[in-house]
Every structure is written in C-alpha cells, then in structure tokens.
C-alpha cells in the first residue's frame, strides 16, 4: 500500500494523543490532586496531537467539507465508528480538562469524566485499528496483531509523553515509567511476532486464484490494461525492497524500543528527578515517536493488496 504521510501522521499522532489522555486520566484519578502544571501541559498537548491527527486525516479527503457525513454509517463502518468515537471523546475530555485546569479538581465526578475520556480514547484507537484489521484484501493487516499493536503502541507512546511532565512537576516517574516500559516491550513482542508470522504466511490469493486460471499453470501478466499508470497501482502497488525493509525495521526497533528503554533505565537509576531527567525522558518520547512513525510507514509499505495480483504480482 502507498504509505500516505497524512495517514501515517494521523495514526501515530492521534495514537500518542489518546495514549497520553489515558495516562493523564489514570494519573489524575489515582493521585486525586494532580499538579495543575501537568494538566496545563499534558491536556493541551494530548488534545493537540489528537486534533492535528484528525485534521490531517480530513485534509487528505477528496471532500473535507463533507467530513461530517462520515458518522452516519456507524452501523457497519469502522471508519464511521472511529469518527464518532473521536468526536464523543471530546465531551468528557472537555469536562475532565475543565475540572483539572479551571476548578483545579480531579476527584469525584471530575475523575469519572477522566476515566470515561480514557475509555473513549481507547475505543477510538480500537476503531482505528479495526479499520485496517477488517480489510480482507490486505493480508498483512487482516490478522490478530493489528488491534493489540495499535493499542499497545498508543499506550507506550502516550506513556513516554507523560513522563516529561511528571519530571517537570518533580513527581515520581516510576508509577508511569514501569507500565510504559511494559507497553514498550509488549509492542515490541507484538511487532516481532507480526513480522515473524506475516513474512512467512501462506498467500491469501495468487494470480492464479485472482484470474481463476491456475489450472492452466503459472499465471503471468503479459500486458497490463494500459501502458501508463492506473489508480489501483498508484494507491496499492507500492513495492519496497527486501533490504530496505530490513534496515527500516532495525531503525524502528532502535528508536521505538532500545533507546527509550535505555533512557528510562538510566533515569530510574538516577536519584530523584529534575531538569536532567526531564530532558532525558523528553528524548525518550521523541525517539519512541520516531520509532512508531517508522513502524507505521512500514505497516503500509509492506502491505500487499490482492488487487495488485491483476497487475503482475504473483501472490498477496
């Protein structure tokens, strides 16, 4: 699949945003009187990431001005559900923010608002993942790794972005750092299994089944329908070289996993927390996000669409 930057940015940014919302809500609920500073930095950041993501995904539409219609088909369409969930999330998120920032309250109903926000955030990420997971036409997406992958990575990146704020307000990092590390490792495991399995998965369809001519022997394309491009090949015909892919996978692992973990370990080893630690965890967050962007780019670039079987691909 063609790795469209708008979509990559959308899924990664909103993923991190929603993840951050989850952590903010939990943190607020658990502490009960969270430092407004964290709210003042965290909430705008989270909502900014989410909103920027949603906007970029809208801009790549042919008719952004009609985007509001996209909620009507929630009965059948995951894209529709995602839109709906995204919009709904703003409501409790608003309350939650109002409580924390204006009323300086995050207990009682304010914390409930926070928890509802967290829940809807996860639902939104889940819907996003389902959009891809439900496409039978793209074997690399249509499997059990897509949904947990998206969720784990959202929570991991969200966690990573939560840490600098804790550092800033001089709060204890461990309660967030530990689960974040956990989600980082979980994402890594999921991704590693994903590659291990999908790389060697039996093809869902072949040029033989696509054309129904397999009984005659290997089916090869002699001439395409046109000598110039077609929409299908522009959109779905993206091919990435094996070597290239391996290198990118390594980079994704380096930025997305190794660097953040190393940094977190170092920070936790350091006594107390301060500017120094803050700087380091910010670094971890940036690195982690870069890793996820790389992962997401590969998620598209490596995915083969069965329609390409008509254009010379021998299996998908």
């Amino acid at each position: 699949m063609h790795p469209a930057l708008s979509v990559i940015f959308f899924t990664t940014a909103s993923g991190a945003g929603y993840g951050l919302l989850v952590w903010l809500a939990l943190y607020a609920a658990l502490t009960g009187d969270a430092d407004p500073l964290i709210g003042w930095v965290g909430l705008p950041l989270a909502l900014a990431l989410v909103t920027a993501g949603l906007l970029s995904s809208t801009f790549h539409l042919g008719h952004p001005e009609r985007a509001w219609r996209a909620m009507s088909q929630w009965r059948s369409s995951w894209l529709s559900r995602e839109g709906l969930a995204a919009v709904l999330t703003y409501i409790p998120a608003g309350l939650f923010a109002a409580g924390w920032l204006l009323a300086d309250r995050n207990d009682g109903i304010w914390s409930i608002a926070g928890l509802v926000t967290a829940l809807l955030a996860l639902v939104t990420v889940y819907c996003t993942a389902k959009i891809y997971q439900s496409l039978k036409t793209i074997p690399r997406w249509h499997n059990g790794f897509t949904v947990p992958g998206y969720l784990a990575m959202a929570l991991a990146t969200g966690g990573l972005w939560m840490l600098p704020m804790l550092a800033l307000s001089g709060a204890e990092l461990l309660p967030i750092a530990l689960p974040t590390t956990g989600f980082l490792l979980l994402s890594a495991v999921i991704k590693w299994r994903y590659w291990a399995v999908t790389d060697h998965a039996a093809p869902t369809a072949t040029s033989g089944t696509a054309t129904g001519l397999s009984s005659l022997g290997t089916v090869r394309l002699l001439e395409g329908p046109t000598t110039s491009e077609t929409y299908v090949m522009r959109e779905m015909g993206y091919k990435i070289g094996r070597k290239h892919a391996v290198k990118l996978r390594q980079l994704a692992a380096l930025f997305g996993l190794l660097i953040p973990i190393a940094v977190l370990a170092a920070v936790l080893a350091m006594p107390g927390s301060g500017i120094m630690a803050g700087g380091l965890v910010l670094l971890a967050a940036l690195s982690g996000s870069i890793g996820v962007v790389l992962e997401r780019w590969l998620y598209f670039a490596e995915a083969r669409h069965v329609a390409t079987l008509y254009y010379g691909a021998e299996f998908a």
């Binding site: 929409y231 299908v232 959109e235 329609a307």
Partner: peptide, 26 residues
C-alpha cells in the same frame, strides 16, 4: 454527492474495480 473521497472502499475491493477521480474528489 455524498462521497468524501476517503478511498476506503477501493481498499476494500479485492478486484481493483474502483477508480478514484482525484480532480472530482470522489
């Protein structure tokens, strides 16, 4: 008149039968 040009339907078509008109956005 309704299509927002999100292209998801074309992703869902195994037969490559849908064609996006980028000028019309549908």
């Amino acid at each position: 008149d309704l299509c927002i040009g999100c292209k998801l339907c074309s992703w869902a078509c195994p037969y490559g039968a849908r064609e996006y008109d980028k000028t019309e956005g549908v």
